[in-house]
Design a protein around this nucleic acid. Structure first.
Lengths: 210, 210
DNA sequence: CCCTTAACCTAACAAGCGCTAGGGAGTGCG
DNA sequence: CGCACTCCCTAGCGCTTGTTAGGTTAAGGG
């Protein structure tokens, strides 16, 4: 029952770390927390469950983090950051003169992929957010607002392109769209659905290309 | 099985009970549980918190219910039933030849009113559902399927009326719509928004009346 | 008047929670 | 070597959870 060695065979992962002082164990703890938050919620993501998933004992968590909420806060924040980056990157990867419809489709797909397939962090911040302690929620308000602003910008493009009826408030479009996307975790089943199809349908539903 | 006023000065509640064998205390417990489930989630809705809200002590809950999950199960089931009835009633109240657009608007408004304003039961079954114990979730699957079928029926009307592009899958429309509606509890603030406006915008977004 | 019953209480149980104090093994450095 | 430091452990604190056993009160019917 040896355990030392900091068990990082993946020390060659990113040689250029965004956060250099981050040990492998820290990342593993965040990963486990994100998984539990996504699938079981805040209260079920206990410090002992997180520790067990990583292969350490409950108390050892506190060598890496000062509190449970610090872990949760970091997970939720990173979740928003990840989906922001995904959407921004997807939009940037499009040809400069891509049609608005394609841009919407790409943004939707990026959000869905991030929250359904790629990132437990993103799904955690969406699914578990509602009943998080207030302190944790406040902690990621700026990040969330930033993400909403990204979508507000996108929506305004469609209005300017005349693809949305001007009698409809832009806020409504954004609530409709982001609501549907954030709820996707409740019905999505990986083997029975195709994110490309869904993205195309969602985009086509919103944009009235006449 | 008589209801003789326990310590309930509200014994004059509804003289026409949908469930006649139901005492006032039972209903109060369900109300308190629905409120806590909606606003704080499953784990925070403790038996003691529910009891305190009703004005009794924690142990006394078990005179009325066999377990916490029995309470939660009843709340969630009733929540779905309530929103089903609300939507069905709203549709039925429309003139026989009401336009599809008006029908969608009415259904959306009924769902939003039920989940945002009228019923803690409905909002509880939407918001808290994700992380409920499996046993409780299974328990209301039929009810939920029934509600989804109601919307599937409605959506099919719009296709037949030619108001939705046939290249879009009906399932996608339903997921988009119900997702947005179910997510509404996360952004709605009673004093800053008008449900009529939102309903109109949502309906107009989906239906491409050319 | 007694007896039953509903409605509620108190007190406690085992289990689980977040968290901490204190210790021990390993590593790097002087 | 000794010292500091990292990483993890054990043991346990105080608290809360769902739940139960057993007792108390008051009302209603015979």
């Amino acid at each position: 029952m040896k355990r030392h060695a900091a068990r990082a065979p993946t020390s060659a992962s990113p040689a250029s770390p965004a956060i250099p002082t981050e040990s492998g164990a820290r990342r593993q703890i965040l990963n486990a927390a994100a998984y539990l938050l996504r699938h079981r919620g805040y209260e079920a993501a206990t410090t002992r469950a997180i520790a067990t998933a990583v292969g350490i004992k409950g108390g050892s968590i506190y060598h890496h983090f000062p509190s449970k909420d610090a872990i949760v806060g970091e997970v939720v924040n990173e979740g928003v950051r990840v989906v922001y980056d995904a959407v921004e990157k997807a939009l940037g990867a499009l040809p400069a003169r891509a049609k608005p419809r394609k841009r919407l489709e790409a943004a939707i797909k990026a959000h869905l992929l991030s929250s359904l397939e790629h990132s437990n962090y993103t799904s955690a911040s969406i699914r578990a957010f509602a009943f998080l302690p207030d302190s944790v929620r406040q902690n990621c308000r700026i990040e969330r607002r930033r993400y909403e602003a990204l979508w507000a910008q996108l929506v305004s493009e469609f209005y300017q392109a005349g693809l949305i009826d001007r009698s409809i408030a832009p806020e409504s479009i954004q609530l409709l769209l982001l609501g549907a996307l954030n709820w996707a975790g409740e019905w999505y089943r990986p083997d029975r659905m195709d994110i490309d199809d869904i993205s195309r349908d969602f985009a086509a539903s919103i944009l009235h290309a006449k």
